[in-house]
Nucleic acid binder design. Structure first.
Lengths: 237, 237
DNA sequence: CGAGGCGTTGAATCCCATCAAGAAATGTGG
DNA sequence: CCACATTTCTTGATGGGATTCAACGCCTCG
């Protein structure tokens, strides 16, 4: 049930996407994953490369005692699996109704042989992943609760493909955000409340916030503001 | 002064090394860096790939307000620069007397064209870097002080190429360890003292500890113990 | 409508950071 | 080689930010 055909237009504006690798997946059949189900588990033999066509996925890792860390969130257009060797390093779980395509790793390799220009895109993707990891390690090791949440919101805002450029959508639940930012759900909640009371955010729909001042949010995030951010800022006062 | 020729035998036993890429650097001249000096700075145009032949290097990133995060430590045999695009993502600073070779990125690219079998080694290296980053994010987001320090020590022990397999060498100073583990120097110091008083470690030389029980250290680290670790354990009671 | 998951808020607690002082090691110059 | 300055490391006292424990409101869905 709810095997929704892939109607969503994948408009991708940020470099977390797939470069030109998307074309490799054109012939693959669409599949779906229900909310809460896993596309694969940490430790499984890594047999496929995935490309999301719809919905949101969380990437999870666990400690032996059950503590969870969320490596990141993925959405339509994103690829999973380029960084694996023989086994998946983490689990991938559907947050909402997810559509995806997948390709056997050997097939993928064979396609790369046929179209070697794609190799540089794989490299590019891996480098982006490393860059993102380092940014996140900096956040986890040095930033306080307010800076963490602000950084997260700012990033969601800047990578959103919503036409409303002041809207932040958070399809994941609080415990996902908490395990992503290395804090508890209570602290996440309290911090969001604080940002609202400071006049930086406005609660919109459940799982959405409206940004009153991107500048103020960025100031709270304590991030370097680069050229890309400057470009974004034009749209927001 | 102290332009020590590269006499050190690079015996590398752990997959954090360079695969077969070392051969590309054979013809490059040896260079040296004095303790505290930088091989390059975050933000500089990324012109070279580096290979360390001697000594220890710390990889640093900074927040706008000066807070520092140490991405990792490198030593003889390790490569720096494969994950960069146009600019260096981080600074690389010599901890002690460092020997290295370097190669222009374009030259490196050209060499890869000539010997395409090395491409998979570059991929391999990037995948290792991603794996290490994820392990470290898990540590930073979920582990407490004792677990962090134990994990760090365990990793130093398992990747040491010292003939004494119970010896942990920490060439970096406490503030380096602190900024790597996301804690303060005081907490690092206190935690080390605690591990000593628990009978897990024995202070040896300054910057060295002797491991009484690897098993106890691993238990405190709360890590999954994999096959590689099992193999190590044979050497330690 | 009732149950359960999710989110918020309050109060108490705790782990780690901060502040401070002194010990130990390193480096420097005479 | 020694006196002195500096850096590094350790230890103690205190405080604060985040966690933990707990209660309650809201929303969704069967």
């Amino acid at each position: 049930m709810l095997a929704i055909p892939n109607l969503q237009v994948v408009s991708h504006t940020y470099p977390c996407g797939d470069g030109g690798l998307a074309s490799l997946f054109l012939r693959q059949p669409c599949e779906v994953a229900e909310p809460g189900t896993a596309l694969f588990f940490e430790g499984d033999a890594a047999s496929h490369i995935f490309r999301l066509t719809k919905g949101n996925v969380r990437i999870c890792r666990f400690l032996p005692d059950g503590r969870r860390f969320i490596v990141g969130f993925l959405r339509a257009g994103d690829l999973i699996g380029l960084s694996f060797r023989s086994r998946y390093l983490f689990s991938a779980e559907a947050i909402d109704h997810v559509g995806f395509k997948r390709m056997n790793k050997r097939t993928f390799e064979a396609e790369l042989q046929l179209a070697p220009e794609h190799r540089s895109q794989v490299l590019s993707h891996l480098r982006d992943e490393i860059t993102a990891s380092q940014d996140h390690m900096l956040l986890l090791s040095q930033k306080n609760a307010e800076e963490r949440v602000s950084t997260f919101l700012l990033h969601r805002l800047d990578t959103s493909d919503d036409t409303d450029r002041h809207l932040i959508s958070l399809p994941m639940i609080r415990s996902d955000i908490a395990d992503y930012l290395g804090m508890t759900i209570e602290t996440v909640s309290r911090t969001l409340t604080k940002l609202v009371s400071k006049g930086i955010l406005l609660p919109a729909e459940r799982h959405q916030f409206r940004v009153i001042s991107r500048t103020a949010l960025a100031r709270h995030a304590n991030e370097y503001e680069d050229d890309y951010a400057d470009e974004q800022r034009r749209y927001l006062q």
